[in-house]
């Protein structure tokens, strides 16, 4: 992983069109601004993971699968 050191107000570029600026750093975390073309999707990684988990969870389960799972979960 490339690691950069930036202070508040400084930025860096990803490719020609995406600029990431470190706006502020506080004890609660860093505030980051992103300038990118409208079609670029910017997602918190946890959200992406949750979307994938939900899609998988929603696919789950015929009644038989559920019965198996319930049996597994009961002592």
């Amino acid at each position: 992983m490339l690691v950069l050191r930036r202070r508040a107000g400084e930025s860096f570029l990803i490719g020609d069109e995406i600029e990431v600026e470190l706006l502020a750093v506080t004890a609660q975390g860093a505030k980051i601004g992103i300038r990118a073309p409208r079609e670029t999707i910017v997602l918190r990684k946890e959200l992406k993971i949750t979307q994938e988990q939900n899609a998988h969870a929603a696919n789950a389960a015929s009644l038989e699968d559920l019965e198996q799972t319930i049996k597994k979960l009961r002592p």
């Binding site: 993971i49 949750t50 988990q53 998988h56 969870a57 789950a60 799972t69 597994k72």
Partner: peptide
């Protein structure tokens, strides 16, 4: 916690979300 099933493996729960 939403649960995902994985066939023979243990089901998993999403504790992060």
């Amino acid at each position: 916690a939403l649960v995902s099933l994985h066939g023979e493996l243990s089901p998993t729960a999403n504790l992060m979300a």
